[in-house]
């Protein structure tokens, strides 16, 4: 099987602070990490490879040149190769432009059975790029995949997470699946993998490689306009109930009564 995993290098938001005046993220000195949901997407691909060693796993990522470090991390976990889409022209891309560029790269790769993506990236939180790539490639898409049940007759049967349960879906391959954290626990890199990853050649594709004109990329092709960004006022500190379920239930009912909510 041939698998493509879309991965993004993101700032570790647990360490990001917000500029109180501008309302923007202060990214200076914040470590960059593999987007957590994308690590689940990669793990899903690697588990398929564990079961069928003929599987190849290719990472596609768009970002600045330093995102090759994240691709190397994916290789050290077990991916076979990686491609970085990096070009000044890609800068300022919203989800529409991003998905256009990634879809162009996947068209160029041409041969694939499944595309995995994370549900969403922790910096933008849109959850749009995966489904948009599928739309552009004309592929079926299942979002919020929490379990891959089996492969049968060119189809994959998955569980899709819902708020109060899950649904079971059968999808014709090639298809695009977006992973949630419940899908698996990403594996560690191996030392052997790290050593190999630093010997690997990671090609960098620009707009010419993707056959896209600069005006069809990045900010030029992004209809999204950010008018203002701001930090929502923090909510008041919550109260944690403790004790047995019965105790906690009583506490909760008391509080709701006090506030005349019930």
């Amino acid at each position: 099987m041939k698998i493509i995993v879309c991965a993004k290098q993101v700032p570790d938001t647990t360490e990001v602070k917000i500029d109180p005046v501008k309302g923007t993220l202060i990214r200076d000195g914040v470590p960059s990490i593999l987007n957590p949901d994308d690590a689940n997407a990669l793990e899903a691909a690697l588990q398929i490879k564990d079961a069928d060693p003929d599987t190849t796993v290719t990472i596609v990522s768009m970002g600045p040149p330093q995102a090759t470090e994240m691709i190397r991390e994916c290789l050290a976990m077990g991916a076979d190769n990686g491609i970085l889409l990096s070009d000044r022209a890609f800068g300022g891309a919203d989800t529409i432009a991003t998905s256009s560029q990634i879809a162009a790269a996947i068209r160029k790769i041409a041969d694939y059975d499944i595309i995995f993506a994370g549900r969403q990236a922790i910096d933008g939180d849109t959850a749009q790029v995966g489904p948009q790539i599928a739309r552009r490639l004309g592929l079926p898409v299942v979002t919020y995949v929490q379990k891959i049940r089996e492969f049968k007759d060119g189809k994959v049967i998955v569980e899709r997470q819902l708020e109060d349960g899950y649904e079971v879906l059968e999808v014709q391959m090639p298809c695009l699946l977006t992973a949630v954290k419940e899908l698996n626990t990403p594996r560690y890199m191996t030392v052997h993998g790290i050593m190999d990853a630093y010997k690997a050649d990671i090609p960098v594709w620009n707009h010419d490689d993707l056959g896209l004109a600069p005006e069809c990329c990045g900010l030029n092709a992004s209809p999204t306009q950010v008018l203002r960004s701001f930090t929502p006022a923090p909510k008041g500190k919550g109260e944690m109930a403790a004790g047995s379920v019965k105790d906690m239930t009583e506490t909760l009912v008391d509080r709701l009564n006090e506030k005349h909510l019930i």
Partner: peptide
């Protein structure tokens, strides 16, 4: 080198 920092990360 960067690979050593990756070992540290692991």
């Amino acid at each position: 080198e960067p690979k050593h920092e990756m070992v540290r990360k692991l």
